[in-house]
Design a protein around this nucleic acid. Structure first.
Lengths: 328, 328
DNA sequence: ATATTTCGTGAAAACGTATTCACGCTTTCT
DNA sequence: AGAAAGCGTGAATACGTTTTCACGAAATAT
C-alpha cells in the first residue's frame, strides 16, 4: 500500500491533486469541507507522501548528514543520540556515517551527503584533511571538536581541559606527573604548560598509538608501557579519554597499584564508563554542545544570513570521583 | 557548486543529457570518445547526481531503515556499526532511528522510513506492537531478535542461552541460583527450566524495571535489592545483559562480596564491558547475524522470490572469564 | 446596478534523473 | 547492389510532488 500517490487520493476525495498537496502542507486557502474529506481518505488508506519527490521539488531534504570518527568511545554514541533527538525535534533526520578515523572514508561520506541532498553537515573531523574542500562546497556545516578558522565550529577547550587536570593535581600536592594519550594533542599541551608554569615537568608519557581505537589495542599499549618501565615515576596521571583511563586502572589494579592511594587518575569525556568505575573525569557538556550545534546549523540552513563564521569554545569542568580525591 | 545538473554537464561535453546519464550508469552503448569527454567534465566540475531525482525515477533509494530500541547497551552500537559497514559494501546507506523502547516512536520511525522510500527495514522491535502493521506494509523487513512468525527474522536463541548459563552453574556444583533482569524474558525461562529439570529452583530474582535503560537506573534497582535482602541466598547469578552484570559486580565488590569466590557471575551479549571487566558472558555472534540479515534483506529487495518467511536461530556460546570459573 | 477585490480551485509547469523511442549512420548478409 | 541488422545518439516522457497561473464564483465597494 505504499504505492499510493496524491493523484489517487485526489480521485477518492473528489478534488484535484493540487488540493491534496495544499491540505497536506497546511495551506490555508482550502475549503474546510474538502480538507476534511481529503484528510479522511489519507487516514483510511494510510497515504504517506513520497519524500524523494518532495526533496526534488523543494530542493531540500530535511536530512542532516552526521559523520563521526568512531563509535567505540561511548562519548560519540551519546553525542549521536542527542543529535538525533534534537534534530528530530526540529523536523530533521540524521544520515549517519562513521569515518573510522580515515580521511578518505570521511570524504566519501561527504560526497554521499551531497548526493543525498542533505541540508547540512555535522562533522567530527579527522584532522584538517577535508576542511578546505568542505568549505568550497558551501554547504551549511558545523564542525564538532576544536577551533577551525574556515567553518562554523563548536567544541570543548581541550587546552583548558589539560590545564584543569594539571592544576588539580598540583593543588592536591602531586610532584610527579604522567599523561596517557596520543600526541600531539591539545590536552597534552595544556597539561604540560601548566606543569611548567608551576616549576614541574611531565615525568612520563604513556603513548597510545593513533591506530589504537578499541580497548584491546589501548590495553596492549598500556601493558607495553608497564612491561618496559621498572617502576612508575609519577603519582598522578591524566588520560585523554575514559577508555584509556579505565584501561590504566585495570592494568594498575592487576599490579597491586592502588588508585587513588598510590596514583591519582583523571579521565576525559565523563562517559558512563567513568561513572561506573568511579573515575574522575573532565566533563563534556554534550547536550549544550548539541543544542548549540543544531541551532547554528539550522540558522544557516533556514535563514542563511551572515557569512561570519561562528567558533564556540565551551569550558571544561572536572567531575571529581574517587580515583583522584587523594591529597598528599 | 552542488547545483549542477546533467544538463550543464551535457552542454559542456557537447552531448545530450541522456548520454551523460548513460555514461554515469555505465551503459555500454556510448562512444568511447564522448564518454571520456563527459567523464572529464564531471571530474572537473565535481558533479554529483541528485539522489532525490534518481530515487524518484528508479523508485528505489538504496537506503535501509534501521530502528533499534536503544544505544546505551554497547551491543547495539556494535550491531549498528556492523550493519552500516556491511550495507555500505553492498551499496546501501543506513537511515538510523532509535525508538528508545517506545512502540509509538517505533511506528513513527517506520512511517518515516516509508516516506523516505527505503528499500528495506531492519528492526530491533519493542515487543509485538508494530509487527502486524509492518507485515501489512509488505516492505522487505528483517527483525533482529527472537522468532517471529509473520516476518523474516534472525536472532540468538535466548531460551538456549538461559539453559547454557544454568547448565554451566550446575556443572560447577552450584545449588542456589540467582537471576538479574527484566521478566518475562526467554533467557529467564530457559534458565529456570534447566534448574527445574535438575531438581533445583530459582532462589532469587533481582528485578530490573523495564524502564531502567541506563546504568544509573539499573544500579538503583540492584542497590534496592541489596538493601532489602538481609543476605544473598544464591552462589551464582545470570544477568540478562553485561551492563546488569557489571552493575552487580560493582554492588557486590562494594559490600566485600568476592567474585567468583563467593558468587559466580555470567553476563549476556559479550560486549567489551565484559571483556574489560573479566566477566563471563554469553556471546552474540554479531558479524554473522548482520551478514545474514543483509543477505536475507537484499535478497528480498533485489530478487523478491519466495514468500516463505525465513526464521533463523543462532546458537549461543559461553565465553568463560574469571567471574565464573569457580568450581565448588 | 456595475466594477473591483477576494477566495477556492484545477490545469500545468518544473524539479533532475532514467529510459523508451525513433532516427540516421555504418556494418553485415544475401 | 540492395536489404537487413546493429550502433550511437538526441528528443521526449515519466517519476510524484510543489507552486504558479488563471479562471470563475462569491463578496465587497462604488
Amino acid at each position: 500500500m505504499s504505492k499510493l500517490t496524491m493523484k489517487e487520493i485526489a480521485k477518492l476525495a473528489n478534488v484535484s491533486q493540487a488540493t491534496v498537496s495544499r491540505v497536506i502542507n497546511g495551506n490555508k486557502s482550502v475549503n474546510e469541507e474538502a480538507a476534511k474529506r481529503v484528510l479522511k481518505v489519507i487516514e483510511e488508506v494510510g497515504f504517506i507522501p513520497n519524500n524523494a519527490a518532495q526533496t526534488l521539488k523543494r530542493s531540500h531534504s530535511n536530512i542532516i548528514g552526521v559523520c563521526v570518527t568512531e563509535t567505540f568511545n561511548p562519548y560519540f554514541v551519546e553525542l549521536i543520540d542527542t543529535l538525533e533527538l534534537e534534530a528530530r525535534k526540529r523536523g530533521y533526520n540524521i544520515l549517519l556515517h562513521n569515518s573510522k578515523h580515515n580521511p578518505i572514508t570521511e570524504w566519501e561520506s561527504i560526497q554521499n551527503f551531497i548526493a543525498r541532498q542533505v541540508d547540512g553537515i555535522i562533522l567530527v573531523p579527522n584532522g584538517e584533511y577535508n576542511i578546505q574542500r568542505l568549505n568550497k562546497l558551501a554547504i551549511p556545516t558545523v564542525i564538532i571538536t576544536k577551533n577551525r578558522e574556515s567553518l562554523d565550529s563548536i567544541g570543548l577547550d581541550h587546552m583548558q581541559a589539560g590545564k584543569i587536570a594539571g592544576e588539580n593535581f598540583i593543588y592536591a600536592g602531586h610532584k610527579k606527573f604522567g599523561f596517557i594519550g596520543t600526541v600531539p594533542d591539545e590536552k597534552y599541551l595544556g597539561y604540560k604548560s601548566v606543569l611548567f608554569e608551576n616549576g614541574f615537568e611531565l615525568n612520563s608519557l604513556i603513548n597510545i598509538k593513533q591506530t589504537s581505537t578499541n580497548n584491546f589495542l589501548i590495553q596492549q599499549d598500556i601493558e607495553a608501557y608497564f612491561n618496559q618501565a621498572d617502576r612508575l615515576d609519577f603519582t598522578c596521571v591524566f588520560a585523554a579519554n575514559d577508555i584509556m583511563a579505565l584501561e590504566f586502572l585495570k592494568a594498575a589494579q592487576k599490579r597491586g597499584i592502588r588508585i587513588p592511594e598510590d596514583i591519582s587518575l583523571i579521565g576525559f569525556d565523563d562517559t558512563y564508563l567513568a561513572k561506573i568505575m568511579g573515575i574522575s573525569s573532565i566533563h563534556q557538556p554534550i547536550e549544550e554542545m548539541v543544542k548549540t550545534t543544531i541551532e547554528i546549523l539550522l540558522n544557516r540552513i533556514e535563514n542563511e544570513v551572515s557569512s561570519e563564521k561562528i567558533n564556540i569554545q565551551l569550558a571544561p569542568t572536572l567531575i571529581e570521583r574517587k580515583s583522584s580525591n587523594f591529597k598528599r
